[in-house]
Simulated scan of single mutants.
Amino acid sequence: MTPNRSQKYRPGEAAPADAPPETQWSEFEVERYKFILQQLHFTNENVHRFLAIYQTLATSLAAAGVALFTGYQKLGLTAEDARSALVAIMTLISMVAAYTILQVLVGVASWFDYRLEECELTDKTVRQGFRARPNWRNLYRWYETYTILFILGTIVALWIFATTEILPRID
């Protein structure tokens, strides 16, 4: 039986001994494909790690802000000092949010790059168009988009609520 020259074999799948060389994945290609898939998985996990860090730090700092607001007089702070401390806490929360958003964006850029590399490798080794290339127009389907929007929304809500409700009540 003569092998079909257009037939390719999956990574790790052994081609028959009589298969032409262009239908077989080299060991390097298999290892590279495994590495790319591992990196894609790793970039997805990192978003969850950074979101957990943001939630922990933002919650802790917000709790410190609430404690300061409710107990600044018992602590012997002036109203001006309490307002300044609350603004400092809100600024810290905003900085943590900015850092988290930056890390998510870097993760998305890395994911996009690895996906392009995966597509190039499968185009070469399997067949042209085996994997669809990632597209920025699909941004609305990525959970990272909504993670960033959630973080931005909480920061905007924090500043609006604090400047209209909390800071004016400190006298």
Rank of each mutant, 00 (worst) to 15 (best):
R127F: 00
S110W: 07
T78W: 00
D18C: 10
L152V: 08
A162L: 04
Y99V: 13
A19Q: 05
A88G: 08
S26L: 00
Y54D: 04
A62G: 02
M90N: 10
N138F: 07
K8D: 08
D18H: 14
Y9G: 00
A109Q: 15
V108I: 13
E13I: 01
L86C: 03
Y33A: 06
Y143G: 06
T147C: 11
M95W: 03
T70G: 12
P168M: 08
L121F: 07
Y143H: 12
L152E: 04
F161L: 15
V104A: 02
H41I: 12
Q39P: 01
I166Y: 04
R131V: 13
M95F: 10
L57Q: 09
L139F: 13
P21H: 05
G76F: 13
I151W: 00
I166Q: 01
T100C: 02
Y143L: 11
I93A: 02
D18Q: 11
Y33P: 02
F150K: 12
G76N: 06
L75E: 15
L167R: 03
T164Q: 04
Y9H: 01
P3F: 10
A63L: 09
G71C: 10
V126C: 10
F35T: 13
Q55K: 10
V47N: 08
L152R: 06
P134Q: 08
L75S: 13
A15I: 03
V96F: 02
I93H: 03
R141V: 13
P11Q: 03
A15F: 02
D113P: 10
L149M: 04
V66P: 07
T2E: 07
D18F: 13
L86M: 09
G71E: 01
L121W: 06
R49A: 14
A79H: 03
A82R: 07
E13G: 00
L40I: 09
T91I: 04
E118Y: 04
